[in-house]
Design a protein around this nucleic acid. Structure first.
Lengths: 340, 340
DNA sequence: GTCATCAATCTAAACGTTATCTTTGTCGAG
DNA sequence: CTCGACAAAGATAACGTTTAGATTGATGAC
């Protein structure tokens, strides 16, 4: 591959200095109409595209954002990635995608990779927890970092996410209103805000009407559908079976749904099912899934906005902002009133 | 944000020259045990991370790959992205993700963006077609480019994909074996290999037993689920309704499934449904979806392998390779034998 | 005629690496 | 004592930009 034309080639072709070429192409400085045209012609003639690497080096920062999610194939993160990629491109940034695979150590490695690449900013959906982890996140990565979806308690960074407690409460209150009293909860990984807070909301809704959550049917499946499938089977086979299940995310709801079907039960006739986190084709399911929705695209856009704000300012360090979205209940067919 | 420590700071701290630091950290040149240790200590002390931008500029290429897909939220591309990201990271490359949104113009813009970023290579699932488009792809982008999933006829590049004709044939032959004779086809965007070849396979299977595809029930839905939903409704409501539907990808199958349900039909009792392209939670559906699967993870790994091969060699330009995978039929519940 | 003004352009110094030479110092052979 | 060999480390020139500051003419005011 012949090495690509550079600004010097353009300058030579147009018969001007490289400074003039730079000024012309960036519309900085004053360049006469005539030479501008000559330069533009020269660009075409030699097939020039500016070298972003050299520019980044000179300017001190790249035109790249880093995005770390725990699992791209989860529709939530897929949709989020799409929104972030779009907003970033609109602002002239490209996005490096990283999959942490729910692994704290891997996530920290990825952060180091992004640091080496000198990304202009990082959007992180964190997978770790604990003080040591938080310290490492606080350690200067050399670029603004904001968090999304999962909140790290005590981390002083911008955050965009769902009001998870309200979401847990909202879906549970809905199920309770339908008359259910024995409600199972399939939770995510302990220690993550999306898991703990959703469970907290679940408990609060029960408490409000004088009920206690039964630990025997409050389970964990690490946000993975397969785990939910495994965990749902004994839940359904055991005696004193719940009349409804609340799953703490979309893929766990799918796992539970599959377990329900595989064991020969029918949803919602035999058991109701609700999820926190809707997903694109939940209306294609039979029954159509009752779920809590969140404004994922908007979250992605705002994350990029927040980041752009921080990339712009060099010295001032404004306080961490956060935007917490209210959940929306979408009642469909997978939850029905309990026949008395 | 105070600007980050650079190699000069490390050199000063360790009391050596920057050349020695570079040699030490890259294990090139000869560095004594003692100074190596001093340098490593200095790295820790000043919190140094090498500047990948400067390195890229000096070395003439970045440690970045570009990946352009038509729609990240499609589970196929989600899984593919995940596999590519993993393989790339294992080889020391980060991945810039780009969503072309099935838009040829946007895709070409994204290629230009990647060119400016001087990525070391590009993996492209193309959305465009036609001679002009192919010419533009052939125009030097400054880095090796390989194609995946969708093949551009006459483009002399590495390609990894499914044997789409075999896939279309395989799923159709299966449906025919179940006794169906009036089979609808919901296709993707005309002109794309995944669409045209799958349809071709469909037609061939019909021809083989002396049947002609009926144009009235061979429809297009641009690979989008919503479009499939729209297109399936008249198909189901009209008279002389098909007894089976073959959808040319996963999300179109979901759209069709939803239409079937919304119009009060049951699958598979009233109508059978099969898809080319499996998806992660197809077994959670009731009925579980009969589909053609492809080895997506392996495709991603091989794409990265191909790219790494081309990145390595500077001068030699070996002929374009391609790897075409055989489809796998996964018979589940959504297709049943036609009662005579 | 002189001089300040201003537009248009150029010169050259960074940015942080890597890699090619050079330099320095030590040791052993002759 | 001299010299080559070799290990260890340093000086420095790129890589392709941007940008601050210098230079060059042309123009107009006095």
């Amino acid at each position: 591959m012949a090495s690509m034309a550079n600004i010097r080639d353009v300058a030579r072709q147009a018969g001007v200095s490289i400074a003039t070429v730079s000024a012309a192409l960036n519309r900085s400085g004053t360049v006469s109409e005539k030479t501008l045209r000559r330069i533009l012609d020269a660009v075409d003639a030699v097939g020039y595209a500016p070298n972003g690497i050299a520019r980044s080096l000179r300017m001190g920062r790249s035109q790249l954002f880093g995005l770390i999610v725990s699992e791209i194939t989860n529709p939530f993160f897929g949709t989020l990635t799409r929104a972030i990629e779009k907003a970033a491109h609109d602002a002239g940034y490209a996005v490096i995608i990283c999959n942490s695979d729910e692994d704290e150590a891997r996530e920290l490695e990825l952060l180091e990779l992004l640091r080496v690449q000198r990304v202009a900013g990082v959007i992180l959906s964190p997978s770790g927890q604990g003080t040591a982890y938080r310290e490492k996140l606080t350690r200067e990565i050399g670029a603004p970092l904001i968090t999304i979806d999962r909140r790290i308690e005590g981390l002083d960074r911008d955050f965009i996410g769902l009001d998870n407690r309200a979401a847990g409460r909202m879906i549970t209150e809905y199920v309770l209103r339908l008359g259910h009293r024995r409600i199972a909860f399939i939770g995510g990984r302990a220690g993550l805000s999306t898991s703990d807070e959703r469970y907290q909301g679940f408990c609060e809704a029960l408490h409000d009407i004088g009920l206690q959550p039964d630990p025997a049917i409050c389970l964990r499946a690490d946000f993975r559908g397969e785990a939910a499938y495994m965990v749902a089977q004994p839940l359904l086979s055991g005696r004193n079976r719940p009349t409804a299940i609340v799953a703490a995310n979309n893929v766990m709801a799918l796992g539970a749904l599959q377990a329900i079907g595989d064991l020969g039960f029918r949803c919602p006739q035999d058991i109701s099912l609700a999820a926190i986190d809707d997903f694109p084709w939940s209306t294609a399911l039979r029954p159509r899934l009752t779920a809590i929705a969140q404004p994922i695209e908007e979250m992605g856009r705002i994350a990029v906005d927040y980041l752009l704000d921080r990339v712009g300012e060099i010295e001032t360090v404004p306080a961490a902002r956060s935007q917490i979205f209210a959940p929306t209940l979408i009642a469909r067919d997978s939850c029905v009133a309990l026949e008395q």
